[in-house]
Design a protein around this nucleic acid. Structure first.
Lengths: 154, 154
DNA sequence: TTATAAAACTTTAAGCTTGAAATAATTAGC
DNA sequence: GCTAATTATTTCAAGCTTAAAGTTTTATAA
């Protein structure tokens, strides 16, 4: 998926784009993952979950998290398990529907995330320094539009 | 990493771009992975390795593969092990340097990849149908340029 | 009611992934 | 030649990931 086109047909341009897109995100992702590990002894998936919860102080259901983060249910279970054991989030049964559990950042989790997020934003700025603000806006727009064309039709 | 910006500072635009980029590639990747599994009973990492080998009929070293695919050495070992056990690639010791081994597609592997790659290219075209050829070229160019600005400095 | 289906999660097995440690073979310095 | 450093690869432990199967709880509906 990271290799180049194997033909020169009509789909060539889009295939090239896809390969670029994937290489770019993999490269940045790898760099961020490494820094998160080195500087904060945490992982990208944990950071993702905490970022989602940080935006929802009222908490999120497991299924909300899995939908929002584009990963499977079972995956979220494991990551939240570990965050709970580290004291960064809590799972609390709800009165109404006892199948569901509300996941929330603990106070420690909130503080921890705020610290990491600030540094993380700096890293992203650094890694994307070659893109001007204006270019970033344009690229973002293009990515947004193409995405809505096919996603979510399943 | 898939959640939105948590602040509105100067790095905001680039953070937004990064989140878009990641969501886009994850969404497409998930769709391609699912189709590869359903249609060809294979995985994205195996497809990646075979794509790299397809471009190098003379073969590649394990370290070439890992560098090219942006993954760790140990990772490639496992994937190639499985491809070997499926009869799709071979590992052959070299005369000169006996630490290294040349990995090549078998005849079956070559045929198999050619079939899958053709379908795969169609899928990518379909998933990126919302991007015009011209837009695709522009996006590719932008991604290429930003990448060279910081990558590989380690 | 009372089965039956649906929904929210968890568990499981298999595979992917990394970083670090271990092996083996080559190269460099003396 | 001989030791030390380097290089190529594998092994390992821990964690991430999915799809599928299982559990518990809630909703549907005859």
């Amino acid at each position: 998926m990271v290799a180049g086109p194997t033909s020169t047909g009509p789909g060539k341009e889009r295939l090239r784009l896809w390969i670029r897109l994937l290489r770019a995100s993999r490269t940045i992702e790898a760099e961020l993952r490494e820094r998160l590990k080195k500087e904060f002894d945490t992982t990208l998936p944990r950071f993702d979950v905490m970022a989602a919860l940080y935006r929802s102080p009222e908490g999120m259901l497991m299924s909300d998290l899995s939908r929002f983060l584009l990963v499977s249910n079972g995956n979220v279970t494991g990551i939240v398990d570990r965050l709970v054991s580290e004291g960064l989030v809590t799972r609390s049964r709800r009165n109404g529907d006892r199948r569901t559990s509300m996941v929330r950042l603990t106070e420690e989790g909130t503080k921890s995330f705020a610290t990491i997020a600030a540094v993380h934003e700096g890293w992203v700025g650094e890694l994307l320094a070659g893109v001007s603000e204006e270019e970033a806006r344009r690229l973002t727009g293009m990515l947004k539009s193409f995405r809505s064309n096919w996603e979510g039709r399943e």
